[in-house]
């Protein structure tokens, strides 16, 4: 991803909040901001999955009574939609965390680490 793209999307995401905006932009070419943009783009990349699966299974749902394999396919599909949704959720969470690190680069590393760890713990409990 180019630095230019990083700055533009950051502006869009950061909104017009005067001082804060400038503070973030100071790190706009930094790896954390690029990571945040990357995670955000990844979330978007996964967005079409449910629609793609829905379109692919469109004709099948009507006659699904005939085959038990198709009934299984329905639950398989639901399970993968949940898994992709979980991945999207993780992308969103990482985006937020990466932006937070970018903003608090001056802060202590330890604070940032514990913030990641707590989220990882929650993800595990899920």
């Amino acid at each position: 991803m180019s630095g230019v793209t990083g700055v533009r999307s950051l502006r869009e995401l950061a909104g017009p909040a005067g001082d804060d905006d400038r503070a973030v932009l100071r790190h706009s070419d930094g790896p954390w901001v690029r990571a945040a943009d990357g995670a955000e783009a990844l979330r978007t990349h996964l967005g079409p999955v449910p629609a793609e699966l829905a379109a692919a299974h469109k004709g099948l749902t009507a006659g699904s009574g005939a085959l038990s394999a198709l009934a299984e396919l329905g639950t398989v599909r639901a399970s993968w939609e949940r898994r992709f949704a979980a991945a999207q959720g993780e992308c969103a969470s990482l985006t937020g965390k990466f932006r937070a690190v970018a903003r608090t680069l001056g802060g202590t590393d330890e604070t940032v680490r514990s913030s990641f760890t707590s989220v990882a713990g929650r993800a595990e409990a899920r």
């Binding site: 038990s68 993968w80 949940r82």
Partner: peptide
């Protein structure tokens, strides 16, 4: 065939979570 593939598909369900 249907019975066989139903079994195969059942095992291709995603596990919950991300790990």
């Amino acid at each position: 065939i249907d019975w066989r593939y139903a079994g195969i598909l059942r095992r291709l369900k995603a596990e919950e979570g991300l790990k």
